[in-house]
């Protein structure tokens, strides 16, 4: 069953002088096993939106249902939180225990797993995110580098094996190889376990390559939702709202401007390379 968002609006501090309408009238469904990318300019409402998916924020109006469970029902919240694992934009918000090991074990233990099972999950999750347990398990999460903190926060969520993974800029501050590895990991969770993925990202390349559909937020409204092809065919609008095109697509556009008629809007550099090499061989 999916995550169903219906006519969702959210106002921070409603009724006060500081009331701030951050989302208005969003209707969107995240299907089972789908990879949904979420893009939008700074302050467009991405983090506000996804924090509704596990009931951390509640609709000012409208509703969010996770597998049919209404996030407004207080007694369902624990169940919803074990279905939807959320990694925050700043990992510091979810690291609070004395050691990395305890931090990662927190979720599984909270779900009622026994110590042995929790320990297995911890070392498994740490390895998945590229943190060697021998080196990091006993370290304080506050004594990690920025990228190590992000990996630890992700491990804590993976250890819960949630049905949906909701990730807010998970690649920020990861090194290039780390990005590749974590993206591959996310993709494999979806393939092997049918985990549904929601990923907020400022990397047009990442969402173009991995997402089934992309939701574009603009000033608190859902501007557009569609396949990467549909979304990135509207380059001028995206650029107007502060976004961009994948790098390969940027090059395609730059080549067209110079009179090289590439028909397809490539997202992947390797595919574009093939086309360019093909053309070169053909012309000779």
């Amino acid at each position: 069953m999916p995550i169903v968002i219906e006519q969702l609006s959210h106002t921070y501090l409603p009724g006060s002088a500081l009331a701030y309408p951050a989302l208005s009238d969003i209707t969107l469904t995240v299907s089972d096993g789908e990879f949904l990318g979420v893009i939008g300019h700074t302050g467009s409402g991405k983090s506000t939106l996804i924090q509704h998916f596990n009931g951390l924020l509640l609709p000012t109006s409208g509703s969010v249902h996770v597998d049919g469970l209404d996030t407004r029902e207080k007694k369902l919240r624990k169940q919803i939180r074990s279905l939807v694992g959320m990694v925050f934009q700043y990992p510091e918000y979810q690291l609070f225990e004395e050691t990395v090991e305890r931090d990662v074990a927190f979720g599984p233990k909270n779900m009622g797993l026994d110590d042995a099972e929790a320990a297995t999950r911890v070392s498994e999750a740490l390895c998945l995110v590229g943190l060697d347990p021998a080196e990091f398990a006993e370290k304080s999460p506050f004594e990690l580098s920025g990228g190590e903190k992000r990996r630890a926060a992700l491990a804590g969520i993976l250890a819960m094996r949630p049905k949906y993974l909701v990730l807010d800029e998970p690649m920020a501050c990861l090194d290039p190889r780390g990005r590749r590895e974590i993206l591959a990991l996310i993709e494999s969770l979806r393939r092997d376990f049918g985990t549904g993925i929601v990923m907020v990202s400022h990397s047009m390349d990442d969402v173009a390559m991995y997402a089934d559909r992309i939701a574009v937020l603009d000033k608190g409204s859902l501007y557009l939702v569609g396949s990467p092809e549909e979304v990135f065919s509207r380059g001028a609008e995206l650029i107007e709202m502060g976004l961009n095109l994948p790098q390969a697509t940027q090059l395609v556009r730059a080549l067209r401007k110079r009179g090289v008629p590439i028909e397809h809007d490539y997202f992947r550099m390797d595919e574009l390379t093939k086309e360019l090499v093909g053309r070169w061989r053909h012309e000779r």
């Binding site: 939008g40 300019h41 700074t42 934009q89 800029e169 920020a172 400022h202 650029i239 502060g242 961009n244």
Partner: peptide, 12 residues
Amino acid sequence: DEATAMLDPRGR
């Protein structure tokens, strides 16, 4: 120190 890591493409 990675001061633009969270900015949108134009902001960066």
